[in-house]
């Protein structure tokens, strides 16, 4: 792509051209090589947006929280970008992206841009696409970017590492709360939300959470993750007030990062994940793709399955095929 075209795209993004932005994100998801060119070109213009990650089990109410958070930020005059991630069906490759149903009231507000992404299941693909989409929305001028993912698996943790502030949503009585707390999310959470906190076993969840927090190492700079209790949207007016409180906590956390100069650490954390993902998609994925193309991968899989050759042996063979220099 020539300089002139890249410049033109950059300008369109900065002007907030929805079609260009949404197509670029599509191309990133679809791994169109030109899209990476664009990211390389616009990257120096990123860094203005604050990124908030929201994660939690399916059904915890993440989309609803996001919807109300958008309103809360808009009341503050902040523009908002949302990236909502839903799973791809491993059987059909299709996906039903339903998160935006709960955010449709922001239509007509040009200060809000909402985009649904499917996990697609490709190695490193999802987090790479989300990272790049964050860059695009950042250049688009969105003050706050909210990323919403189902909080299971390593790739979601990777995505969350792109956020300045990570909000973990828990609900009472879903059975998997303690599991979630254990699953590595606990360590990266900056704020906990107990959603549907008017349910009878919310108090127990609160206590469990407090206990778990007490046992945890101190966060950098001495931040103590607060626990924000929300009711339900059965009372939308009260819920909106509670979400305002959550937004204030997020703001506090951001201010804390800046005051204590921890924000640089966060940026480095983000950079590290980005680099690892980039290596994955630039190095690992092409290797796997090429092995897949000529059937080599399939042959190897069969031999491993038949217990003839171990995976390690093949990995070494592949390393010798592709990597010219020994580390």
């Amino acid at each position: 792509m020539d300089q002139q075209k890249l410049e033109k795209i950059l300008n369109r993004i900065r002007e907030g051209d929805v079609r260009v932005v949404s197509r670029l994100i599509r191309n990133l998801e679809d791994r169109i090589p030109e899209a990476k060119e664009v990211i390389k070109y616009i990257y120096p213009h990123t860094g203005q947006a604050r990124v908030v990650g929201i994660t939690g089990a399916p059904g915890a109410g993440k989309s609803t929280i996001t919807d109300f958070l958008i309103s809360s930020y808009r009341k503050q005059g902040k523009t908002v970008g949302v990236l909502a991630v839903d799973p791809t069906s491993p059987f059909t490759g299709g996906a039903l992206l339903g998160d935006r149903v709960r955010m449709q009231d922001h239509a007509g507000d040009s200060g809000v841009f909402i985009r649904s992404l499917a996990t697609r299941g490709a190695l490193g693909g999802l987090s790479a696409a989300v990272e790049d989409a964050i860059h695009v929305l950042d250049v688009m001028g969105k003050d706050v970017i909210i990323i919403e993912t189902v909080g299971t698996g390593q790739s979601e943790v990777d995505i969350m590492n792109n956020a300045h502030t990570i909000v973990v949503v828990l609900t009472p009585g879903m059975g998997d709360d303690v599991q979630t707390i254990k699953a590595g999310i606990m360590e990266i959470a900056d704020i906990f939300v107990i959603n549907k906190g008017d349910q009878p076993n919310a108090a127990k969840l609160f206590m469990d959470l407090m206990r778990a927090l007490d046992m945890m190492q101190e966060c950098p700079g001495g931040w103590k993750p607060p626990i924000v209790k929300l009711g339900t949207t059965a009372n939308p007016i009260k819920y909106a007030e509670e979400i305002d409180e959550l937004r204030k906590k997020i703001d506090e956390h951001l201010k804390f990062l800046e005051d204590k100069k921890i924000i640089e650490q966060r940026e480095k954390r983000k950079a590290r994940v980005q680099l690892i993902n980039a290596i994955e998609s630039q190095v690992l994925v092409p290797i796997i793709d090429s092995l897949e193309k000529d059937g080599t991968l399939q042959n190897m899989v069969e031999k491993i399955a038949n217990k003839q050759v171990s995976a390690h042996e093949f990995a070494e063979e592949i390393k010798n095929m592709f990597c010219k220099k020994e580390q």
Partner: peptide
């Protein structure tokens, strides 16, 4: 990949969502 809007949408809401979702 399917984006579902839910019920009671105005044409404006539908078009805006379609553009953002490409």
């Amino acid at each position: 990949e399917v984006i579902y809007t839910g019920c009671h949408q105005t044409p404006e809401q539908i078009v805006e969502a379609a553009l953002q979702e490409d």
